[in-house]
Amino acid sequence: MTVPALYRGLFDDAALFPPGELPLPEAVPAHEAHRAAWYAEAVGPFLCGAGRLADLRATATAPLRVALVLPGGSGQLAPALADAAGLTVVGVELADPDVPAAVVALDEQLPSGVAAAVELARGDGLEAALDVLAGTPYRAKFRTGGLAAGAFPTEAELAAFLAGCAARALPYKCTAGLHHAVRHTDPATGFEHHGFLNVLLAAQAGEDAAAAAEVLAERSGELLAKAALDLTDDQIAVVRGRFTAFGTCSVAEPLDDLAALGLLAPPAPLEDR
């Protein structure tokens, strides 16, 4: 069974992070199970903060593809890379209010073959930060939610980020809040959540922020699913060249959503084949 190209490597495993916060002894075997499952092509690296790397080395029973999440600035990079010795580090996600300093640190310290993303702050300085990242080997990282209503960007704000990245040929990843495929209001919190399928399809709008905002606002799973199925191979390559991945504390939830929308089909049981 092959995962459609639109969803391959889309779901970075953020099980350790809020709101899931799965204990490490549970998160590691769960990730290993994901990587052995029929949908393994959809699963990205295991995300781990700098302070948990020693525990991760002690817990993992098989090689893991790990991405280091470093919210404490560029000064965390060298110590975290040293602490990750023995792990298969495939990515670094670095947050630093001084984006030029983050780029310099990555240029000087990032091992060959390791991908990196720089988390950008929302607000007036975003365009300038995008300019700094443009032309570098690094992706932009943008928060699409959190534990408070104010952590969720509006459709217009997220669309402006997507369009700004497209204008600079700058790939990006998202983190937080993309719990389901389709835009919705969380009945428990009242928070407005973006849908990861909305974001995928909005990436096709390129520099047209108004068109991207319209897609981000769509709440019909049926319409979004049809649009996803209608994408050509070339369009899928463009979309995934822009929107590379997002962190999810539950790999199962987005897969279940795709299956419910008819976009992903688990293999039939052996007795039914």
Rank of each mutant, 00 (worst) to 15 (best):
T2E: 12
L6Y: 01
Y7C: 01
R8M: 03
D12H: 13
D13K: 12
L16V: 07
P19S: 00
E21V: 05
L24Q: 08
E26M: 11
A27I: 04
A27H: 07
A30V: 04
A30H: 12
H31S: 13
H31E: 12
H31G: 12
H31F: 15
H31I: 13
A33L: 12
H34C: 11
A40S: 13
A40E: 10
E41G: 04
E41L: 02
E41D: 14
G44V: 13
G44L: 11
F46Y: 08
F46L: 14
F46P: 13
R52V: 10
R52Q: 15
R52W: 05
L56N: 02
T61L: 13
A62I: 07
P63D: 05
L64A: 12
V69G: 01
P71H: 06
P71T: 05
G72H: 08
G73E: 02
S74T: 13
G75S: 12
G75Q: 07
G75V: 10
Q76C: 03
Q76T: 06
A78T: 13
P79R: 05
A82L: 10
A82S: 11
D83T: 04
G86I: 01
L87R: 03
G91S: 06
G91H: 05
D98V: 11
A101G: 14
A102G: 10
V104I: 09
L110W: 03
P111G: 12
S112T: 15
V114P: 10
A115F: 03
A116K: 00
A116H: 01
E119R: 09
A121P: 01
D124L: 13
D124P: 13
G125K: 10
E127Q: 14
A128H: 12
A129E: 15
L130D: 03
V132H: 00
L133P: 02
T136H: 03
K141M: 14
R143Y: 02
R143T: 03
G146L: 03
A149P: 05
G150V: 12
A156N: 04
A156V: 09
E157D: 13
E157I: 01
A160Q: 12
F161S: 06
A163V: 09
C165Q: 11
A166M: 09
A166P: 09
A167Y: 05
A167G: 15
A169L: 08
A169Q: 13
P171T: 11
C174W: 02
C174E: 04
T175E: 08
H179P: 00
H180Q: 12
V182N: 02
R183L: 02
T185R: 14
P187T: 06
P187A: 11
A188G: 04
A188D: 14
T189A: 08
F191P: 04
H194D: 04
H194L: 01
G195V: 04
F196Q: 02
L201V: 07
L201M: 04
E207V: 15
E207G: 09
D208E: 14
A209Y: 10
A210G: 13
A211H: 09
A213I: 09
A213G: 07
A217E: 07
R219P: 02
G221V: 06
A225P: 02
A227N: 00
D230L: 09
L231C: 10
L231T: 05
L231Y: 00
L231Q: 10
Q235P: 01
A237M: 05
A237S: 14
V238E: 15
G247D: 07
G247Q: 08
T248Q: 04
T248H: 05
S250N: 03
L255Q: 01
D256Y: 00
D256I: 00
A260S: 09
G262M: 05
P267K: 10
A268Q: 14
P269E: 09
